[in-house]
């Protein structure tokens, strides 16, 4: 009785061990073939962000990567929880779009201990220890502002009275796009910003501010520079209502490159938009693959943003997904 029971146990144990070994061999084999990557996204607050999510999802399925997606609904604590969950699930790499700049060290240290590389997308973090992440893939807002200024200088022969529509005061894109633009027009003495007010990145803000400025300090305007497309689209309406022809009487240029901007360019009301590319999927997964191979990556990979004007808009419009 005793012996038989012992034998049964032994048999059961060996079967269990054998099957476990086989299973782990299979899973190892599978892991060899299929990567698992966790993506901690901020949320879905704008068309731009949705486009970014779509890009990463579609790139993952294209490369046969098993993607674990988490939407933090704009909250850092949710993102930290998501990253911890990814570590616990033993993902191969993590892509993180940090909602704020600070407070990431503890959770990123946990990821480093688990030897999971972290790729940051679209926004950076503030940390003394740069080894906590593999690389940051983002647009350079200063460069976007400068590209806009250079395009305007070329278009107007270095002569313009500009109304600037700023983004939300204190927001990184607003600060940097202003800085870049100011640097870009510095060399041209006849390019002046005659009025600069915040339209809060809103369509209604762009319209209200332009409407007011056109009757005051901005009456002699020849160009409107907006920190995002939405404000430019609002400004276009205000210009039309003031009896000016946006696109011809007054040059209008902005940043982001959303679909609405391309439609306005095709209608010859917007002159130029500098793209702020949300389609970071391919670059993010390139970085993940390199990091997993142990290649050294630069700490910042700048996304190449392109300038579109009314000449190139019609050809690009069908490709716009956001």
């Amino acid at each position: 009785m005793n012996t038989r029971s012992f034998l049964t146990k032994l048999g059961a144990t060996s079967i269990a061990i054998a099957s476990f070994t086989v299973a782990s061999l299979i899973s190892l084999h599978a892991a060899d073939k299929k990567l698992t990557v966790g993506f901690a996204q901020v949320g879905a607050e704008s068309a731009w962000r949705t486009a970014e999510t779509e890009s990463i999802k579609s790139e993952a399925s294209k490369r046969g990567v098993n993607l674990k997606f988490s939407d933090a609904q704009g909250k850092q604590e949710n993102q930290i929880k998501a990253v911890r969950a990814f570590i616990a699930q033993g993902v191969d790499a993590i892509i993180l779009a940090p909602v704020v700049e600070t407070g990431w060290e503890p959770v990123l240290r946990e990821a480093r201990r688990a030897k999971i590389p972290v790729v940051l997308v679209d926004r950076g973090i503030k940390t003394a220890d740069e080894s906590l992440f593999a690389t940051l893939i983002a647009s350079d807002f200063v460069a976007e502002g400068r590209m806009a200024a250079e395009w305007l200088a070329k278009k107007t022969g270095g002569k313009a009275s500009i109304i600037e529509l700023q983004g939300t005061p204190g927001a990184a894109p607003a600060i940097d796009r202003k800085k870049g633009f100011e640097a870009g027009i510095k060399a041209h003495h006849e390019m002046k910003i005659i009025a600069s007010q915040s339209g809060d990145f809103r369509r209604s803000g762009g319209k209200e501010v332009t409407e007011a400025l056109l009757k005051g300090s901005g009456a002699s305007v020849t160009a409107v520079y907006a920190h995002n497309d939405d404000m430019a689209l609002g400004a276009i309406q205000a210009l039309e209502e003031a009896g000016k022809k946006p696109g011809t009487d007054v040059i209008v240029l902005s940043i982001d490159g959303v679909k609405g901007a391309f439609e306005a360019m095709v209608a010859a009301k917007l002159n130029c938009t500098v793209e702020c590319n949300p389609l970071l999927g391919p670059m993010a997964f390139d970085a993940v693959e390199k990091a997993l191979k142990g290649e050294k990556l630069p700490k910042k990979t700048v996304v190449q943003d392109r300038v579109f004007d009314s000449n190139s808009a019609a050809a690009e419009l069908p490709n716009r997904r956001y």
Partner: peptide, 14 residues
């Protein structure tokens, strides 16, 4: 609000 625009008060200070 309109007065702030007219006077050109920087938006961060307005």
């Amino acid at each position: 609000t309109t007065t702030m625009y007219n006077l050109g008060v920087p938006p961060a200070v307005a």
